[in-house]
């Protein structure tokens, strides 16, 4: 089985639930295991939240998400029109070891993405950020 679907999200509107619904639908039609569906949902939520939160300073207006489901892997491509930002290099490492009283609040989103996905690639092309995430389906 395989399927490809693209969803464009206006970052200035509350459209992220539309993305979540598309992931849920593909998970069902493509027979994703519950953990895989959860993880794809989570990484897209984290990316979407970051883009919406920083859209003013990043000067971005939209994100275009392409979900590509194959037997071996699910590939997610996220394109946005903001200023160059490479989450694989420009983001500070998350603190996941300090004691409770010293643990900073936040900064976990990118850490979750990098840990949960098998591959995270960034490139800048035609004034757009392109993030490609791959998650293998067979252990």
């Amino acid at each position: 089985m395989s399927a490809t679907r693209s969803i464009q999200i206006d970052l200035g509107a509350p459209e992220l639930p539309r993305l979540a619904a598309a992931v849920e639908e593909m998970a069902e039609t493509e027979g994703w295991m519950p953990d895989l569906a959860f993880q794809i949902q989570l990484v897209l939520d984290e990316i979407g939240d970051n883009l919406v939160e920083h859209r003013a300073q990043a000067q971005s207006t939209y994100m275009m998400v392409t979900l590509d489901s194959r037997d071996q892997a699910v590939t997610v491509e996220v394109v946005d029109d903001g200023i160059a930002f490479d989450p694989t290099a420009d983001a500070p490492a998350a603190d996941v070891t300090s004691a409770l009283e010293d643990r900073p609040i936040g900064g976990l989103g990118l850490h979750l993405i990098r840990t949960l996905m098998d591959k995270v690639d960034y490139r800048r092309e035609d004034g757009r950020n392109i993030l490609t995430l791959v998650k293998h389906r067979t252990p």
């Binding site: 949902q41 939520d45 984290e46 939240d49 609040i105 936040g106 976990l108 989103g109």
Partner: peptide, 8 residues
């Protein structure tokens, strides 16, 4: 389901 917004 919980995302990092909930973890915070």
């Amino acid at each position: 389901y919980i995302s990092s917004a909930g973890l915070r």
